[in-house]
C-alpha cells in the first residue's frame, strides 16, 4: 500500500537525478501549474502523466496517493464551481447559490491544477529516498543558517514527519480494524455513533503519536543525536544527466511561458 511520502525503488533515469534538480523542478512546476491557463494546464498535466508512466509509476499508485485527499479535491471543485461569478444556468434558490459556465470551468481548472500538484509531489517523493530530499532542502535552506535559522533541526523534523506518516496511517488502519472487530459497522451506524467512533479513533491515534514521539526521542538520544552537529550520508553531486535535466527543465519553463502567453 502506497502512502504519500513513501519512496518506492525503481530504475528509471528520474530515480538517479540529483535531488536538488528534482526539488527545483517541483517548485518550478508548482508555480507554473498555479499560473497556467486552461489549455497549457491540460498539456502540463498530460506531460506529468507521461513522465509518471516513463518513471514506472502505476496509475493505481497515483490513485492511492489522491484517495486520502479526495474530500478536499471535491470541496475545492464545488467551492470554485458555486462561488465563481458568471451567467448562472442553474440556481439553488434556498441557499442563494448558482452554477455558471465560468464557475464550472474554474472548478475543473483548479481541481486539475491541484491534481497536477499532487502528481508532481508524488513523483518527487516516490523517486527520491527521503534522505536525498532532505539533503536537497538543507542545501537550499543553507543560506538561512546565517540568520541563525536551525536548518539541521528543520531537516530532521522533515525526516521524522516523513517517517511517521505511514506509521500513523497504518496505526489508524489498525484501530479501525479493531473497532470493526468489536462490532462497529460504519455503514449501519447512526450519526452519533459515527462521531463517537471517530472521537475514540482520534484519541487513540493521538495517544499513539505522543507515545511514539517520546520513544523515538529516547531512541534518537541513544544514538547520539545532537542538534546542529551532524554530517550526512547523502553526497550531492551533479553529473551530466543532471545538467541535461536542468537544461530541459529551463527549456520547458520558457516554452510554457510562451504557451501561456499565446493562449492567454
Amino acid at each position: 500500500m502506497y502512502h504519500i511520502g513513501s519512496y518506492i525503488r525503481g530504475g528509471a533515469i528520474i530515480y538517479r537525478l540529483d535531488p536538488r534538480i528534482k526539488l527545483a523542478a517541483v517548485i518550478v512546476l508548482s508555480i507554473v501549474i498555479l499560473a497556467a491557463k486552461p489549455l497549457p494546464s491540460v498539456f502540463l498535466g498530460l506531460a506529468l502523466i507521461i513522465l509518471a508512466f516513463f518513471s514506472g509509476i502505476r496509475l493505481r499508485t497515483i490513485a492511492q496517493a489522491v484517495k486520502p485527499l479526495l474530500f478536499f479535491i471535491v470541496l475545492i471543485f464545488f467551492v470554485h464551481a458555486l462561488f465563481t461569478e458568471g451567467n448562472a444556468f442553474l440556481s439553488i434558490t434556498c441557499f442563494g447559490l448558482s452554477l455558471s459556465r465560468a464557475g464550472l470551468s474554474a472548478g475543473f481548472l483548479v481541481t486539475w491544477q491541484f491534481l497536477c500538484l499532487i502528481l508532481a509531489a508524488v513523483l518527487l517523493t516516490m523517486t527520491s529516498p527521503p534522505a536525498q530530499i532532505i539533503a536537497a532542502i538543507k542545501y537550499y535552506l543553507y543560506p538561512l543558517k546565517l540568520l541563525r535559522v536551525p536548518v539541521d533541526v528543520i531537516a530532521v523534523m522533515i525526516m521524522l514527519a516523513l517517517r511517521m506518516m505511514p506509521v500513523l496511517l497504518s496505526e489508524k488502519e489498525r484501530i479501525e480494524i479493531a473497532q470493526r472487530a468489536r462490532g462497529y459497522n460504519e455503514k449501519k451506524s447512526g450519526f452519533i455513533l459515527r462521531i463517537k467512533a471517530f472521537l475514540s479513533l482520534t484519541a487513540a491515534v493521538l495517544l499513539g503519536v505522543f507515545r511514539r514521539a517520546d520513544e523515538l526521542a529516547v531512541a534518537m538520544e541513544a544514538r547520539n543525536y545532537q542538534q546542529d552537529t551532524r554530517t550526512s550520508f547523502v553526497e550531492l553531486r551533479m553529473v551530466s544527466t543532471d545538467f541535461i535535466a536542468l537544461f530541459f527543465l529551463s527549456v520547458f519553463f520558457f516554452i510554457f511561458i510562451a504557451l501561456n502567453y499565446c493562449f492567454g
Binding site: 534522505a131 517517517r163 506509521v167 523515538l216 531512541a219 544514538r223 547520539n224 554530517t231 550520508f233
Partner: peptide, 25 residues
Amino acid sequence: PENQIIGMTVEEDVAFGPENLQLPT
C-alpha cells in the same frame, strides 16, 4: 523497532548514528 527506526530506508536509518558522530560521508 518501530519506535527506534528513524530513517525511511534501511541505509538511511543505519546511517543516523554515524551521522551524529559527525563522520565524513
